[in-house]
Amino acid sequence: MSTWKIREIKSEDNQQVKDLIRSVLVEMGVPKVGTAYEDKALDDMTDTYKGERRAYFVVEENSKIIGSAGIAPLTGLEEEICELQKMYFLPEARGRGIGMEMITKCLQFGRDHDFKKCYIETLPYMENARKLYHKNGFEVIEKPLGNTGHYNCTVFMIKDL
């Protein structure tokens, strides 16, 4: 039986989510500029993902947030393409099928909100993340789409919903 659950973010989760995202980025050696590390959105993820056609989910285990991911319209291509955003898991969450379940939940949200495609940006050395995206049908494309502001992310992937 799993001891974790995926649920929508609440305002009391904001600091834990910010700390989780930043600690994973530091662990992975990600640049602090041109990536999610410096996003203003991290200060209030609940507010960032409030509104239509957007959601942010957390993985909770024993009252601790061990992973999170969001889905929202891709800036500049809002009508048809959603973006899988800020998907990060602490080491204790990895290799347990949680990422697969999180992607499934996010992609279903995209389908339920009439998006045609889902886009994601990542980094070449985030190999496990790229494998997970590929397993879920994401294909690498040559150039970025939309306007994410994450100029240090150099791997672009898309999937038909």
Results as ranks from 00 to 15, higher is better:
2 S>F: 13
4 W>A: 11
4 W>N: 14
4 W>K: 11
4 W>R: 10
6 I>S: 08
9 I>Y: 05
10 K>H: 04
10 K>I: 08
10 K>V: 10
11 S>Y: 01
13 D>F: 07
15 Q>M: 06
15 Q>S: 04
21 I>F: 04
22 R>W: 00
24 V>E: 05
25 L>Q: 09
26 V>L: 04
27 E>I: 05
27 E>P: 05
27 E>F: 12
27 E>S: 11
28 M>L: 06
28 M>K: 01
29 G>N: 07
37 Y>Q: 01
39 D>G: 00
40 K>T: 00
41 A>D: 14
46 T>F: 13
47 D>S: 15
47 D>Y: 15
48 T>V: 11
50 K>D: 11
50 K>S: 15
51 G>V: 08
53 R>D: 02
53 R>C: 02
57 F>K: 13
59 V>R: 04
59 V>E: 04
60 E>M: 14
62 N>I: 05
66 I>W: 10
66 I>P: 08
67 G>N: 05
68 S>P: 03
69 A>I: 07
69 A>E: 06
69 A>V: 09
71 I>S: 03
71 I>R: 03
72 A>F: 01
72 A>N: 09
75 T>P: 02
78 E>D: 12
78 E>R: 03
78 E>S: 07
80 E>F: 10
81 I>Y: 07
84 L>K: 03
84 L>D: 06
88 Y>S: 01
91 P>T: 03
93 A>E: 07
95 G>V: 10
95 G>D: 09
97 G>I: 11
99 G>Q: 14
100 M>K: 15
101 E>S: 08
104 T>Q: 13
104 T>A: 13
106 C>P: 10
106 C>V: 12
107 L>Q: 12
109 F>L: 09
110 G>S: 15
111 R>H: 08
112 D>N: 11
112 D>L: 01
115 F>Y: 08
117 K>R: 15
119 Y>D: 01
120 I>V: 15
121 E>L: 10
126 M>K: 01
128 N>L: 09
128 N>I: 09
135 K>N: 14
139 E>L: 13
139 E>Y: 03
139 E>T: 13
140 V>T: 12
142 E>H: 02
142 E>K: 11
143 K>H: 13
143 K>C: 03
144 P>L: 05
145 L>F: 07
145 L>S: 05
145 L>K: 13
147 N>T: 02
148 T>D: 00
150 H>Q: 02
150 H>I: 00
151 Y>P: 06
151 Y>R: 03
159 K>T: 13
160 D>H: 12
161 L>I: 15
161 L>E: 08
